[in-house]
Amino acid sequence: MAKNPPKEVGLLRKFISTARSITTGQVDLSLGILRLEKNLFWLKGCDINPLTTDELKIVNDYYDRIRELPIEEERLAWAPDKLEKLDEKLERITTRYRPQLMEILNRIVTEAS
């Protein structure tokens, strides 16, 4: 019977899978970064940091700017006019960070191949 891989391996695979899903367009950048932050939290608990200090700063900066915005199911609770304004804010923030984030995500996917 095959043994399950160590917890760290599974967490790292999930991190890479999240990066891949963003780069292929399966998951929106903002939602993907929310998921990536969760992956990074669990990896940090295992003393694994797959990002450089500069990369981590960029990801954390973007996350800090979007984490209070309605991105997932909570969007259903917002009034359409308010949601439109918040979507515009999200788009401005995402446009600013997209090139750097995509470079980081592409590096992760490429190195994992």
Rank of each mutant, 00 (worst) to 15 (best):
W78A: 04
P80S: 00
N60C: 05
E74L: 12
A79D: 05
L90C: 01
E84T: 02
I71T: 03
D81H: 11
I66H: 08
P80Q: 00
R92L: 07
T94C: 10
P70Y: 06
L90W: 00
D64V: 08
D87E: 10
W78E: 05
I71G: 01
D64F: 11
K82L: 08
L76R: 14
E91T: 09
E68R: 06
E91F: 03
L76Y: 09
Y62L: 13
R75I: 13
K89A: 04
D61N: 15
Y97K: 13
E88A: 02
Y97P: 06
D81C: 03
R65G: 07
R65E: 15
E91S: 04
K82V: 11
Y62H: 12
E73D: 15
I66M: 12
K89M: 05
N60Y: 05
L86K: 11
L90Q: 02
E88C: 02
E74S: 13
E73G: 14
W78M: 05
E88D: 07
R96N: 04
K82F: 03
L86E: 06
E74T: 11
T94H: 03
K82T: 07
I71K: 03
D61L: 12
W78Q: 04
K85D: 02
P70V: 07
I66A: 13
A79S: 04
E91Q: 09
I93G: 05
E72G: 05
D81N: 09
P80M: 00
A79V: 04
P80I: 00
E68K: 09
K82N: 05
A79Q: 06
D61M: 12
V59Q: 08
N60D: 11
I93N: 07
L83S: 02
E73H: 10
R75E: 08
L83Y: 00
K85T: 06
R96A: 07
D61R: 14
R65L: 15
D87Y: 03
E84N: 01
Y97A: 15
Y97C: 15
D81I: 03
E84A: 05
R96T: 14
R92Y: 03
D61S: 15
R65H: 12
Y63A: 13
R75Q: 10
N60S: 14
K82D: 08
W78S: 01
A79L: 02
Y63V: 12
I93Q: 03
I66R: 10
R96Q: 07
I93W: 04
K89H: 02
D64S: 14
A77G: 05
D87T: 01
T94A: 15
R67D: 15
L86W: 04
D87Q: 06
